[in-house]
Simulated assay, not measured.
Amino acid sequence: MLIGPPGSGKSTVGTLLAQRLGTSFRDTDADVEAVAGKPVSDIFVDDGEERFRELEAEAVRRALDEHAGVLSLGGGAILSEATQSLLAGHPVVYLQVGLADAVQRVGLASARPLLVLNPRSRLKQLMDERRPIYERLASLIVATDGRTPEDITDEIVKGLTA
Results as ranks from 00 to 15, higher is better:
78 I>F: 12
96 Q>E: 15
51 R>M: 05
92 V>R: 04
65 D>S: 13
113 P>G: 15
59 A>P: 02
65 D>Q: 13
45 V>L: 13
83 T>Q: 03
109 A>T: 14
53 R>T: 13
86 L>A: 14
41 S>E: 05
58 E>H: 01
109 A>F: 03
35 V>C: 05
94 Y>L: 08
21 L>K: 07
18 A>Q: 00
112 R>Y: 15
43 I>C: 08
15 T>Y: 01
64 L>G: 09
54 E>A: 08
59 A>E: 04
86 L>C: 05
108 L>M: 15
62 R>Q: 07
18 A>R: 03
29 D>N: 08
40 V>G: 00
63 A>V: 07
58 E>K: 01
88 A>D: 13
28 T>R: 10
116 V>E: 06
101 D>V: 03
110 S>C: 13
25 F>C: 03
26 R>M: 10
32 V>I: 12
61 R>M: 06
95 L>K: 05
39 P>R: 14
92 V>L: 10
22 G>V: 13
26 R>N: 14
112 R>W: 11
111 A>L: 10
50 E>C: 00
23 T>F: 07
28 T>Q: 04
99 L>F: 09
61 R>F: 00
110 S>P: 11
46 D>N: 04
90 H>F: 12
108 L>H: 06
98 G>M: 09
106 V>W: 04
18 A>H: 02
55 L>R: 06
87 L>Y: 01
92 V>Y: 09
36 A>T: 05
97 V>A: 14
28 T>M: 07
66 E>W: 01
21 L>C: 02
109 A>V: 10
13 V>P: 07
51 R>S: 04
68 A>V: 04
102 A>Y: 13
52 F>M: 06
40 V>K: 01
23 T>N: 06
102 A>L: 08
86 L>G: 03
88 A>I: 12
57 A>E: 13
11 S>A: 12
45 V>I: 14
45 V>R: 14
93 V>N: 09
23 T>V: 15
113 P>H: 10
19 Q>Y: 01
19 Q>W: 02
45 V>W: 11
97 V>P: 00
81 E>M: 01
37 G>R: 10
86 L>I: 06
52 F>T: 04
79 L>T: 11
84 Q>K: 15
66 E>Q: 10
20 R>A: 07
72 S>L: 06
94 Y>T: 09
47 D>K: 10
71 L>Y: 02
79 L>D: 08
85 S>H: 12
35 V>T: 09
84 Q>V: 11
100 A>N: 14
51 R>T: 08
83 T>D: 05
54 E>Y: 03
66 E>A: 12
84 Q>M: 11
53 R>D: 09
71 L>A: 03
44 F>T: 15
11 S>M: 11
113 P>L: 07
41 S>C: 12
28 T>D: 02
40 V>Q: 03
45 V>Q: 13
29 D>P: 09
27 D>R: 00
48 G>R: 01
14 G>Y: 10
86 L>Y: 08
31 D>N: 02
93 V>H: 08
15 T>D: 08
21 L>T: 04
54 E>G: 05
20 R>F: 02
76 G>F: 00
94 Y>F: 15
99 L>R: 13
72 S>T: 06
